[in-house]
Amino acid sequence: MAEAFRGEFYQKVDAKARVSIPAAFRRILDADDKPRADKEQPHVYLVYGGRNRSFVEGYSKRGADDLADQIAAMELGSKARMRAERELISRSIMVELEPDGRIVLPPKVREKIGLTDGDLGSAEAAFAGVTNRFRLYSRKVYDAELAADADDEDEDVDPLALVGRSARGG
């Protein structure tokens, strides 16, 4: 696996719907999007599909291509493949980073994370690394989900034990 997206970052969303991609994430996006034409900036692929999701997932070019390859390997014409294509490929958008590391959040992305035009200029975005991709939330939604997760978690279970269970198939 390529370098993982790691960490939590909070960034202001300006009045023009621009937000800075965290520097650590930009380095991965840049490394995974070669070769490019001169002066062209790296791209981020924003997936806004999935009805039950309160976030948008961001992929590097390599990550987006890997996801597309996984979907292409599914049975052609199957209901699962058609849903995956619709939710993860059709309901996505490629955005080029500006030279200063910002992107403009497209309307569908803003809608998905619950940012209205009235929020622009005062809202914060939360970026959360999740291995081969990152999740983009509105800060309010991310904080609320973290609080809800804290209520649901078994305080006696070490998170490393969960990884061990997965590795053992249980």
Rank of each mutant, 00 (worst) to 15 (best):
A2E: 09
E3H: 13
G7I: 08
E8C: 11
E8I: 13
Q11K: 11
V13L: 05
V13I: 10
I21F: 04
R26W: 05
D32H: 13
D33H: 07
K34I: 06
P35Q: 12
R36V: 02
A37R: 15
D38W: 06
K39I: 04
Q41N: 10
P42G: 00
Y45T: 06
Y45D: 01
Y45P: 05
V47G: 01
Y48G: 01
G50P: 08
N52A: 12
N52P: 00
N52V: 04
R53S: 03
S54F: 05
E57M: 12
S60H: 05
R62C: 01
G63W: 00
G63H: 00
D66N: 14
D66K: 11
D66C: 00
L67V: 09
A68R: 12
A72E: 14
A72M: 14
M74K: 07
L76Y: 14
L76T: 15
L76Q: 13
L76S: 13
G77W: 03
S78K: 08
K79D: 14
K79F: 04
R81K: 15
R81N: 07
M82R: 15
R86K: 14
E87D: 14
S90H: 15
S90A: 13
R91K: 13
S92L: 07
I93V: 12
M94Q: 11
V95Q: 09
E96P: 01
L97W: 01
P99A: 04
G101F: 04
R102W: 03
R102C: 04
P107K: 04
E111H: 13
E111M: 14
E111Q: 14
K112M: 01
K112P: 09
L115Q: 01
T116M: 10
L120Y: 01
L120A: 05
S122I: 11
A123Q: 01
E124W: 01
A125H: 00
A126I: 07
F127Q: 06
G129A: 05
G129C: 00
V130W: 03
V130D: 10
T131I: 09
N132T: 15
R133T: 05
S138W: 05
R139N: 10
R139W: 08
V141T: 15
V141F: 05
Y142L: 06
A147F: 09
A147H: 14
A148M: 10
E153A: 10
E155H: 07
D156A: 13
D158I: 13
P159C: 02
P159T: 07
A161F: 12
A161K: 10
V163Y: 08
R168S: 13
R168N: 00
G169Q: 07
G170C: 01
